[in-house]
Design a protein around this nucleic acid. Sequence first.
DNA 1: TTCAATTATGAGAGCGCTCCCATAATTATA
DNA 2: TATAATTATGGGAGCGCTCTCATAATTGAA
Lengths: 351, 351
Amino acid sequence: MRAVPEQEQTAASLTLEDIAKLAGVSRSTVSRVVNEQPNVRNDVRQRVLDVIQTTGYQPNAAARALASQRSWTLGMILPHSVSFFFTDPYYPHLTKGIAQACNQHDYTLAFFLVGSKEDEEKIFPRVSRRGLLDGVLVQSGHHGDQEIISHLLDANIPLVVVGRPFRYDNVSYIDIDNVNASFNAVGHLMRLGYQRIGTITGPPNSTVGIDRKKGYLKALTERGREIDEALIVEGDFTETGGYYAMQKLLSSKPDAVFAASDIMAIGAMRAVRDAGLAIPDDIAFVGFDDLPIATFSDAKLTTMRQSVVEFGEKSVELLIDLIENGSQTPHHIILDTELVIRDTCGAKKRN
Amino acid sequence: MRAVPEQEQTAASLTLEDIAKLAGVSRSTVSRVVNEQPNVRNDVRQRVLDVIQTTGYQPNAAARALASQRSWTLGMILPHSVSFFFTDPYYPHLTKGIAQACNQHDYTLAFFLVGSKEDEEKIFPRVSRRGLLDGVLVQSGHHGDQEIISHLLDANIPLVVVGRPFRYDNVSYIDIDNVNASFNAVGHLMRLGYQRIGTITGPPNSTVGIDRKKGYLKALTERGREIDEALIVEGDFTETGGYYAMQKLLSSKPDAVFAASDIMAIGAMRAVRDAGLAIPDDIAFVGFDDLPIATFSDAKLTTMRQSVVEFGEKSVELLIDLIENGSQTPHHIILDTELVIRDTCGAKKRN
DNA sequence: TTCAATTATGAGAGCGCTCCCATAATTATA
DNA sequence: TATAATTATGGGAGCGCTCTCATAATTGAA
């Protein structure tokens, strides 16, 4: 059933043994050179390298994986809950960060986008199949993802959750300090003198949604402000969600709004303009994420920056660390955020 | 250097041989059962299946790949040109379609997101490494992607381009008939009686941009209308690009606009509203893609539907066909589109 | 110059499958 | 019932690597 080998002995179908013969050394020596191991004489190493160079030899990934019990492939799972993969550009960006980090570390990224809850069942055995993945990244932080996480935990496969999961004591994850970041974002608005600061939150079944709201509340209460429930409206991390949330908020007459994501801030600002109000003069804004879209609009968005690139990098590095050093105690990494002051908060006008 | 096996002989680390022993048959028989091959007595098959079921056995992917010379993994390459991966939700959607199709066909999807032109060099040897991928999908249609495509072609790896590339005589690709689709979209506006139909095109270094503009021109000229260059403005498949393009267009006083993508249409409609004009009464709109966002806004977008799910499915199926039947003649698949009439074209008001 | 320590090299086994082929069991046909 | 055809099963080789271990070459110290 194997395809008939045509004319060619293509470069890529050469084996270690072939290279060894061409370089006049043994398979083992070539293997050492390929894997940059010591104990090869310099001239020999160079000779082998030359042969590899001219032939364009590439080691066979499957053979290497079988022999070394390492596939050099990481899995990334997007659970069904991450259907805003399509509505919040944050996810594509994060995905890019992860993909790039994998490249840099010479890992291949396998992508498991779970379309439906049933798909999760189907994907699970695939992910836990030996010889395919060295470790798994799960983009999560949603309440519905507990099951898949504990599945993965049971399978004893190195695992990093990207975003804090609901139960996290026994799993490694990476996140930013959402509470504190939001606290600072709202604090910034308070320092600028705004009196009626509203917020558009994320959904309450996500840790991100919960934490950012918590930071908002904390900022107000710690400085003795009263919480006005009418100033808190739930969004869903979509632009449209932000738009409608803002429409509701408008009746409570806020003078500033902290939106839990840039994309919601953009939707909300559109609602403000549609209502004939000006930003930041009538209503000031602070967003969250600092995606490129934050600067696309006329009014550049003041926002809490989290470096998605760094987020991706660190997730991958944590996972690789887990794979290579296999510690059993879960690691929790919290990345920094930084307030980026642009136009929409009104800070510049007040200087 | 191998990790010390702790207490467990986890289910997933069982081998074919173990299952054989447990079921009282040979390795070969288990292999036949696992791979759903004939020539196994029913009761034996059932016995083996039971053992597999209870042990949770999963064949080792690397071993299977090595022995069968098939990795059951497809690569998806997003060249650097697809940086609008982050600005046009079309790409995440398409990615989802592809990911789901891979799942359905029991392939794993490996994801190569090329961050920079230099990355392309780095990714190339990885992709052409034997034993890793059975075939490759390239999301393309951009002028800058010729190089990577011919690289892949040289490497003699089964290849499907998703979107028509600039040179396509020697490569398999899948696309929609963009010219005809746009022709129909614009024809729809003409039939509704609009006189000054403008267009916001895609960039001219993409086949999609070129073809959709071509369809626009064809629709006008075939019906004896004159082309007014002032009614043609270039966009870049981003919402912001659509917004600014529309601002330019406004001075030419169009009564209808065909936008080459939904996301640009949405940006453009925002510009129209910001200018105090109504949709569709002052300016009618037809978009292209029919992404979910088309229906999010208040004014539901009339648009040319291309099924991204089907697009993904068909790409994967074409690639699998190439892998399994390995024909040398390139296949070109053109999918259908369908005009979805909603509010923004004004058709409903006129009935 | 001699022997120990160190470094370089090669041979062999084995990773866990698939696939071919030989043989055993079963069924069909005469 | 005997023999041919068919179907079921098992054993062996091999996919292309890695990694351990034995041995050869080189260097250092006495």
